[in-house]
């Protein structure tokens, strides 16, 4: 168990069900300050739901989620917004505001939360856009960007308020190898240069292993394994081994439960 001083997020024995379907049953997780924590798991294991819990979009049915030492379930709207101001989140598709150009998208949180002069604000935005290599794209609209560029703009927007915690939801999905390498290095650089705590949710095992300090593997509503990427890769536990190596044989079934195959092909039509 990590001591409270270094834990940015503590998830304790969380139970959660959405529309009658249980998603978490006794989930535990600790994210430590200044480290990159990878959360891996097969599709549908609740990775995105975990992020909704951590950002206070939903509350756990049982157990506690605490972020920066605040129990998310007990916060009112003002307090929740105060906690959220300390975090940045990168959405899977970028979630850029489609009626604003790249510059204004990055400037958006600053305009909403501060009274900075226009020249100071512009300098701030140029710096963040430079960090993601898109200073030249400032006047493009989101629809004119490729998927990788949109995600880098979203990253610039996520860091413009200098958050202490950065959350990446599936940052590598649908990226070509070059964009993937760029985003991967950006995550690492943000973390090291700005001293940010990072959570990366993904199922790209190989890529994550190169940057993550800690990793968790989710399955069946709980964390089935945790440790460094090296430890997970070397694990002999069947479920962990299957996920890390991408095998079809193992405890996680490829086939959704179905009646007998031969019987269905040859038998009476239903």
């Amino acid at each position: 168990m990590a001591d409270a001083a270094t834990a940015v997020i503590e998830v304790r024995d969380v139970h959660y069900a959405a529309s009658g379907r249980p998603i978490f049953a006794g989930l535990d997780m600790v994210v430590r300050r200044g480290r990159i924590t990878a959360i891996m798991g097969p599709s549908g294991s609740g990775k995105t739901t975990l992020l909704r819990l951590v950002t206070g979009q939903v509350n756990a049915d049982r157990g506690s989620v605490s972020v920066f030492g605040h129990d998310m379930a007990t916060l009112d709207r003002e307090q929740l917004y105060a906690v959220r101001r300390r975090m940045g989140m990168l959405f899977q598709n970028g979630a850029l505001l489609t009626d604003l150009d790249v510059f204004e998208n990055v400037a958006f949180p600053v305009r909403e939360h501060t009274d900075l002069s226009e020249s100071l604000l512009a300098r701030l935005v140029w710096m963040k856009l430079q960090a993601v290599g898109l200073r030249g794209a400032a006047r493009l609209m989101p629809t004119e960007l490729s998927g990788g560029m949109a995600r880098r703009v979203a990253l610039a927007r996520a860091i413009v308020m200098d958050p202490q915690l950065l959350i990446y939801d599936e940052p590598f999905v649908g990226l070509d190898p070059i964009s993937m390498g760029v985003v991967l290095r950006l995550i690492k650089r943000m973390n090291d240069a700005l001293g940010i705590t990072s959570i990366v949710v993904s199922h790209d095992v190989q890529e994550l292993a190169t940057i993550a300090d800690d990793s968790y593997l989710m399955a069946g509503g709980r964390m089935t394994a945790s440790g460094s990427p090296r430890q997970l890769a070397d694990s002999s536990e069947p479920a962990v081994h299957q996920f890390m190596t991408g095998g079809e044989e193992g405890p996680v079934l490829f086939h959704y439960p179905a009646p007998d195959y031969v019987g269905q092909l040859l038998g009476t039509p239903e």
Partner: peptide, 15 residues
């Protein structure tokens, strides 16, 4: 805006 997470993104930005 809801379907493309723009509203959620605002919520997370405390807007």
């Amino acid at each position: 805006m809801r379907a493309t997470d723009q509203l959620t993104a605002m919520e997370i930005m405390a807007v």
